[in-house]
Design a protein around this nucleic acid. Structure first.
Lengths: 224, 224
DNA sequence: TTCTGGACTGACCATACAGTCATGTTATTA
DNA sequence: TAATAACATGACTGTATGGTCAGTCCAGAA
């Protein structure tokens, strides 16, 4: 559906441009081909995310991805070199977003308490809104060779940011002196565990409730 | 090596018994065949544990397991029906032991503080002594269809035991009132995360140190 | 020494699946 | 409308691997 609207739009707009045209503001304009190509790409990525979330990398079959994307298997290979490249694409997309989102919200928060809450709540909310991604993480955290280190990297920055906030607060005497990095990591651990339990459906309370619970526990542990 | 010693022992002991003989205390005695059979079984399980720890279930190849066990592939199938059965055998063995070990040590501890320490320390020490098992857990927690629920079951009992100890302590006023089960789960989360970081080699301190750190954090969070 | 049952072997089979490519199909240009 | 280019298709190929089984070997019996 979207496909046809998009194509018609470009047809009216730029006729049959083969090279990127320029729009008034100077940024390059997408050609029809690029739009189509990006559309297919994202369809395939969506299908792959869904399949990998259900089956994992090894058992997530290319035929299934193609079928779910509504194209033939050969088409998938017009857009991606290999299964692994699709997997990477899914994670690069999603994890990068998640990382940035977490960093932003921690930075936006003023107090340490709010920063901790920002961390847990961002993860919990994203897990809610993007169950498939978190299922993949849950399923495959390290199973596929190249992901183990990658996963850590994606978590690493937010955790370090949290750690430095903890460090600052401790220095200001707002909380007791702690090994800030270790504390930041175990906050991440608790959050992940809570998310996993939510994914297993043991919990139908809103994310904010879990976040509140975690914050209360953590804050009690940090009190001077 | 062990094999030959064992066989010779049985030869001297019970000559060529085909049926289980009786020893004085009335328990049935193993025949030579049983000893041989159990020896092979455990060789295969050890090989499988090692292969699965390195490769995971899907990429852990039967030929590799057979080779590492020092037998032909056909022999493996004399002892196990399928790859899945071997995997189950590895986990049943090890996880059951780990579960019992954890329960015992929690029960042996008197105070809540000691019980919490028993939980974390048992897990940390076992992770140290049985790296391969924990690598499998880390790698495959839910990847293979039948394991997801199984893993939770193995953790569930120790966590509930811990939860009830927390509940009691809260009732006696030793700690503040908390949702004991949730707290027990996040203690498990922190422990698991710490173990995973240890497995990644980020940490060469003794397990007792990590355990002490966790206990201090948790205890601060629970203080009245 | 010869015989026999059962443990062991590894070449072999069947299947599943990632990736390819000859053959359409559709859109665009002239 | 015909020619061309670009995109899409799915049957097909090569390989990896779980599982099998006809045959070998050998400890112990007679």
């Amino acid at each position: 559906m979207l496909l046809y609207y998009t194509v018609m739009f470009w047809r009216a707009e730029s006729h049959t441009a083969t090279h990127p045209a320029q729009v008034p503001d100077g940024r390059s304009m997408k050609t029809k081909q690029q739009v189509l190509s990006e559309f297919r790409r994202s369809e395939i990525i969506d299908a792959a995310r869904s399949v990998f979330a259900r089956k994992g990398f090894d058992r997530g079959i290319m035929d299934a991805i193609a079928k779910e994307a509504g194209v033939a298997k050969g088409t998938v290979y017009l857009y991606f070199r290999s299964k692994e490249e699709i997997y990477r694409a899914v994670l690069d997309n999603d994890m990068e977003f998640l990382k940035k989102n977490t960093l932003e919200r921690i930075n936006a928060a003023k107090t340490l308490k709010d920063k901790i809450q920002a961390f847990t709540l961002t993860r919990l909310e994203n897990a809610e809104a993007r169950k498939e991604l978190f299922r993949i993480m849950d399923l495959e955290s390290g199973g596929v060779s190249f992901t183990r280190s990658q996963y850590r990297r994606w978590l690493h920055e937010p955790v370090l940011l949290l750690a430095s906030a903890i460090e600052d607060a401790a220095r200001r005497g707002e909380i007791r002196r702690v090994h800030s990095e270790k504390v930041a990591w175990i906050i991440a651990d608790m959050t992940r565990g809570t998310i996993q339990r939510r994914l297993l459906g043991q919990n139908d309370t809103p994310p904010s409730e879990d976040s509140k619970f975690l914050l209360k526990f953590i804050w009690a542990a940090l009190a001077v």
